[in-house]
Design a binder for these strands. Structure first.
Lengths: 188, 188
DNA sequence: ACTGTCGATGTCAGTTGCTGTCATCAGCGT
DNA sequence: ACGCTGATGACAGCAACTGACATCGACAGT
């Protein structure tokens, strides 16, 4: 047994999400989050770079998953198809936590600073995917374009998945968005 | 003659850009910006919501220009082609300020918070373009996809325009990116 | 010319996010 | 037993941002 309760980081994430839901992101102070987690304010900043980051702990994991999924994709696949396939695989995993995802997304949508953070996480993700494509021999500009297009497809499909009633299938929505983009760029 | 020197807002923008270039964004305090502009710190926050916003005064203008350019586009054009054409028109105007754009972009690239702000401005822009497309009768999802794809095309072309040696033509780079995306989504 | 309103700015105090620094203390290896 | 390490606490301090109130030229109406 340690000197302190275990999983300080997890407790902070939990406390923060609860408080952000209860009274909103801006109305919550870091001191309150720390107090609910049974820690000092200073400790919060040892685990998270800032007050927003506590909501994005999973972003790094998702990015690693996508990059390795992309690395495993068939060499025969088009860059865009490979990226979309990686997102579909990730979508299958996300699927299991729809309610959590909805809560989190509601908090993020309600605050501009959190939306900014989300956007930069997605941009970092697209950049990592572009790098992975380049390692597969894809041209510089084609890699950027395919990664950004894939990211846009995912964002739009994710939003529909969150907002739609019932139990929509995220990988299926991703595939639909991909097909629609292909139709849009095919001319009329 | 007013009681104060005219164009306080412009002086603040100028002073801020200079200081961000001289010593970097984080190393500059709002008090220093205000002092260089001959104003009080409080006045800075009356003109700009925060320390970052002072670099993005033109974003609103750009967005309005794009939306009205899109509204003027031919009804025969594909959604993506209409969006790309709007960006090309904007690119023609941006072209005249390449050096200013490069300086500004260097400052933004050097700081994560500024990149976040830039991303949300671009997201807002894409969202406005999607709305404009919907008013033209484009489907919800097609409008989002076309606007996001157009935005990605512009971002990538803009980056190349900034970094390339010589005097690259921005509208031409936009067109090239559009064509490349079309090729990528056309299958092999 | 007088007067009252208005708009842009100054001044000041206060909250909060975030950082640097040093102290504390259980566990662990030697 | 001893010292090292890693996670935490305690405290001081800076800078971003906000609210409240004061100031004073411009300007309109009379």
């Amino acid at each position: 047994m340690g000197r302190w309760e275990p999983n300080a980081r997890g407790r902070l994430e939990q406390a923060a999400l609860e408080l952000y839901i209860e009274r909103g992101f801006e109305q919550t102070t870091v001191a309150e989050i720390a107090k609910r987690a049974g820690l000092a304010e200073r400790t919060f900043f040892r685990h998270f770079a800032d007050k927003r980051e506590v909501l994005f702990g999973g972003a790094g994991t998702l990015q690693e998953f996508l990059v390795s999924a992309l690395a495993d994709a068939s060499d025969a696949a088009t860059p865009i198809d490979a990226v979309a396939a990686a997102f579909e695989a990730a979508g299958t995993l996300l699927q299991e936590r729809r309610e959590t995802a909805r809560q989190r997304q509601a908090v993020i949508a309600a605050n501009a600073e959190l939306r900014e953070r989300e956007l930069i996480k997605l941009a970092s993700l697209a950049s990592a995917l572009a790098d992975a494509l380049r390692q597969r021999g894809v041209t510089d500009s084609a890699a950027s374009l395919a990664a950004e297009a894939g990211s846009a497809i995912f964002r739009i499909a994710f939003e529909r998945w969150i907002n739609e009633a019932g139990q929509p299938d995220l990988p299926h929505l991703i595939r639909e968005s991909l097909d629609e983009l292909k139709a849009l760029t095919a001319g009329k």
